[in-house]
């Protein structure tokens, strides 16, 4: 079956608390592309990501994955990885327990080599530390380590560079690059400008009145 568009956002409008965030949004994202959503605080970047994840219903409009509506596809959950501004790291569980639980919920086997997994974001020292003792950046790195577990095609990342140090930013950039080179799709929000060397980075500026593509 030939698929025309991997991810297609069609005439999407969203409002929160009676305030229109964006309207009639049309975006197409193809394999190997990174969509970088930009905009002021409260412009609706996070809401758009939640709509793409299926966590929030849009006011009007539709989202298509492989030419089909996301709402009717049960396997869409397997194609999708979402990291919201709440990272989903349980404060009471240790680093290793958090990742085991995530892996199981993502439909994967238990992680067999936890040390190796944690070494990517240099977290191996804290393998058995309760997460509430870790810093914000370390917690964010726990959440990002899930990217190594998932085999989802579509990554939706809300402010993934928040709180993490320069070294981790480089590692994450590298990870994103690998993912799109394999034909994956990344949709992310960030206030930071990203220096993606040789990657198709599409930038969208979200604002309530005007809206457009800035290459």
């Amino acid at each position: 079956m030939k698929v025309n568009f991997m991810l297609r956002i069609k005439q999407l409008s969203c409002s929160r608390n009676d305030r229109c965030l964006f309207s009639n949004l049309d975006i197409v994202v193809n394999p190997g592309e990174i969509l970088h959503l930009k905009g002021k605080n409260g412009a609706g970047k996070s809401s758009l990501l939640q709509i793409l994840a299926g966590l929030l219903l849009p006011e009007t409009g539709e989202v298509f994955w492989q030419d089909k509506l996301i709402a009717i596809q049960t396997h869409y959950a397997r194609e999708l990885f979402y990291l919201g501004h709440k990272s989903g790291v349980k404060a009471g569980l240790t680093v290793a327990e958090n990742l085991q639980l995530s892996a199981m919920l993502m439909g994967k086997n238990k992680v067999s080599d936890m040390l190796q997994l944690l070494s990517f974001f240099k977290l191996e020292k804290w393998i058995n530390s309760p997460s509430h003792l870790l810093s914000a950046g370390q917690k964010q790195r726990i959440a990002l380590t899930r990217l190594l577990i998932t085999d989802a095609t579509l990554w939706l990342l809300d402010e993934p560079f928040n709180a993490i140090d320069q070294e981790s930013i480089q590692l994450l950039m590298h990870l994103l690059q690998q993912h799109v080179e394999k034909g994956g799709i990344v949709v992310l929000t960030s206030h930071q400008s990203l220096a993606f060397a040789g990657l198709k980075e599409k930038q969208w500026l979200l604002s309530s009145n005007s809206l457009g593509e800035t290459e």
Binding site: A53, G54, L55, A77, L80, Y82, G84, H85, K86, S87, G88, V89, K90, A91, S102, L105, M106, G107
Partner: peptide, 10 residues
Amino acid sequence: DGSLAALLLS
């Protein structure tokens, strides 16, 4: 803590 979203997206 956001883990409910992970449950919904499982």
